[in-house]
């Protein structure tokens, strides 16, 4: 069937952080499982594309991404009623659990359906998930969105190829953590703090 193009992330000389297939075990019959997610570390070149933010402002992706804050990134579209609401809800809950640290992070959601996702629709979508000032949604031309998707190796031919992938990066220049599958808000928070600690340690030893 459709199994030719694998989902191998561009691993560049970095060991995978580890496959985190967490599954609670219990004597009770069939406990609910925690998330199924696969994590890897990867370098991506942020493409120099112009996108339009959900406040209507035209922006350059590298500038948005490289303002020094840690970035959590995903790709969504607003009419998606299957996995996107869960992905966005996960980001929203993660954001909430950050508490006072929320001001330090930059959450970014890029539309993979930019012609449908006008600024007004993106704005309404962002509000539905109570996105604060630290969380922006982006649209733009179909080509710009495609370029961004290709740069992060998430484009799979069309929207139906969309899967749940979350990216986390501590600071510009450091590698991205790529999380495939459904990560829980708690796991995302844990990974985020871990990445920040690592990054802080790296800075301290320089």
């Amino acid at each position: 069937m459709l199994r030719l193009l694998g989902v191998a992330a561009p691993l560049i000389g970095l060991a995978a952080v580890g496959a985190a297939f967490s599954q609670e075990s219990s004597e009770q019959s069939a406990p609910p499982r925690a998330s199924h997610s696969f994590m890897s570390s990867a370098q991506y070149t942020v493409p120099d594309v112009r996108l339009v933010r959900d406040d209507g402002k035209a922006v350059a992706l590298p500038e948005e991404m490289n303002d020094g804050r840690p970035v959590v990134l995903n790709f969504i579209y607003t009419t998606c009623s299957t996995i996107c609401p869960l992905m966005s809800q996960t980001l929203a809950q993660f954001d909430h659990e950050l508490g006072a640290d929320r001001g330090r992070v930059h959450l970014m959601s890029i539309s993979i359906d930019p012609e449908e996702d006008t600024v007004a629709r993106l704005h309404a979508y962002a509000q539905k998930f109570h996105a604060g000032p630290e969380w922006q949604h982006y649209t733009g031309t179909a080509q710009a969105s495609l370029t961004a998707q290709r740069a992060f190796n998430v484009w799979r031919g069309d929207k139906m190829g969309h899967s749940s992938v979350t990216f986390v990066r501590a600071a510009p220049g450091t590698p991205w953590l790529r999380i495939e599958g459904f990560v829980t808000p708690g796991e995302l928070l844990q990974q985020y703090h871990h990445l920040l600690e690592q990054s802080g340690a790296t800075v301290a030893t320089r």
Partner: peptide, 12 residues
Amino acid sequence: GTYEGYNFDVTI
């Protein structure tokens, strides 16, 4: 139902 993902990552 429907699906999401090139490899039918999610099948509904």
